[in-house]
Amino acid sequence: MSALTLEPILKGRRSQPHMLIETLLDVQESNGYVSTEDMKIISRELGVPEIEVYRAANFYKALSLKPRGKNVITICAGTACHVRGSNLLSSQIHGLLGIGPGETTADGLFTLEQVNCLGACALGPVVVLNGEYHDHVTPAKLKALILKAGGQEKQAPGKKRTPVKASARKEAAACANGKKRHSSGKALKS
């Protein structure tokens, strides 16, 4: 990105070192990540030493220094979520998409991230997909989420287990239906 495209973000923040985090967050939101060029421009315009910009961008999990995929899956790896099997979800994603924490699929569709706590320990394991929180995630739920997010275009790279996928989709659909039925039943009862 050039200084011109960063203009709306930098407007009113020039020469104000204390606006560093806000600026970085805005860049992150509009680009999906903070590039080295962006950081250099921010350093120049805000009057913050480059090392400080780099340090701040490196410090916060909310800021990514590498381009991220279209869909960002965030898995909570806090104690409560870990006890309830969030590491199984991580390894399931590794099996499905072939990515580990902090990695992006080759087609740029998915990025997996791990955070230490999302503050919803009672609802664990918690998975955030594109800013949407999902509680009590099971492998089946996660699979359904990924298939939904990836849509038809998603074909797991390096994996060719379409029959499994199809059955999984059915399974997921059944699961979703079951939940719906369940919830509607509840609604009826009440």
Binding site: P49, E50, I51, Y54, R55
Partner: peptide, 29 residues
């Protein structure tokens, strides 16, 4: 680097167990 020479060419990067001394963006500026 920062106090005496006012260069700020190195600094702490990362956090927790990954904290280390590094150059901005990984290269000597």
């Amino acid at each position: 680097c920062s106090d005496m020479w006012q260069a700020r060419a190195i600094g702490f990067v990362g956090r927790g167990a990954e904290r280390r001394v590094g150059f901005p963006f990984g290269d000597r500026p």
